[in-house]
Nucleic acid binder design. Structure first.
Lengths: 156, 156
DNA sequence: CGCCTTCTGTTGAAATTTCATCTAATCACG
DNA sequence: CGTGATTAGATGAAATTTCAACAGAAGGCG
């Protein structure tokens, strides 16, 4: 064969374009609802990630990994969320460089107000249209692709 | 059960988070390569969309639909790409409000230089890890979700 | 026609994100 | 221990994206 693939097939193109368009539209839609609670979609992600932890705290670097955000972006964002009273920053005892980001009471209550509507939207606009096996396929695809990206990043 | 779904299942969560993380990382990776050709990922999308058309031209409103960008974002972006000489703007004869965005020779050649590397990356980092049926599933999911979002936007 | 509504695209300011750089702390290792 | 390399996070300026408001053109309908 010449090369593995000179271009994308029609089906690949449909999947590729569709996926990013879907992501954009979905995010826009979800953001519109979250705005009613005074949160951006990004704010929500941060709050939700913090609340995954029982003590509502995460190292900045952990958040950065989980969300896939550059550290600078996260740092700026956390600063702004701090000013709004949604989170706090406290130094990490075991690593003097580290910072814990912690949910404030207000952050927690804002999240708990927004979450039901948000989850409802995610179900309505996304999962409602997917079969169980489709969901499983998505999860597996994401894991596989991410694993390979990570592996590739090591030797590169 | 209480309500249809109070929260997301573990598998749903895995799919949901994985999908957006994948998108972010993928985009970052692809962007890094495109930067070698002096293009951002966004630039590439615009150029590629224009080059889909035989005459390399699109109405701004068409681009906005295809890319899912807000018109203001697109307007600013086109302006900047104009200044860099990648595209031109010409008024649309049949609709005095309309603007055609057109690939310049430089835009076309920049794209043709960047495209092979980019397509290669998309294959390497994404499609390489997917079976044919997984690709088909992705395409169908995106279409379905987008259709329902569009339908929902009408009566809302 | 005249009026009202919708559509297209632009604009400038504000908010967000990126980029390069910097400081301090940890780590690896002789 | 000491030194050089790496890591965590912050910072300010530049680039990008959003938001609200706007102007002109089309379209609908009396």
């Amino acid at each position: 064969m010449t090369t593995p693939a000179k271009w994308l097939s029609a089906e690949q193109l449909r999947a590729w374009k569709g996926l990013s368009l879907m992501q954009l539209q979905l995010q826009a839609r979800l953001g519109r609802r979250l705005a009613e609670h005074g949160l951006s979609y990004q704010d929500y992600l941060v709050l939700a990630t913090l609340s995954d932890q029982p003590d509502g705290r995460r190292r900045v670097v952990e958040l950065s990994d989980e969300l896939g955000w550059e550290k600078s972006r996260l740092s700026h964002h956390i600063t702004r969320m701090c000013e709004r009273g949604l989170v706090n920053k406290v130094p990490c005892p075991s690593d003097q460089r580290g910072i814990f980001v912690i949910l404030t009471d207000e952050g927690r209550s804002t999240l708990s107000l927004a979450a039901p509507d948000h989850v409802d939207d995610v179900q309505r606009y996304f999962f409602r249209h997917l079969s169980t096996s489709q969901v499983a396929t998505l999860a597996r695809i994401a894991d596989t692709v991410l694993e390979n990206l990570a592996a590739d990043a090591l030797d590169a």
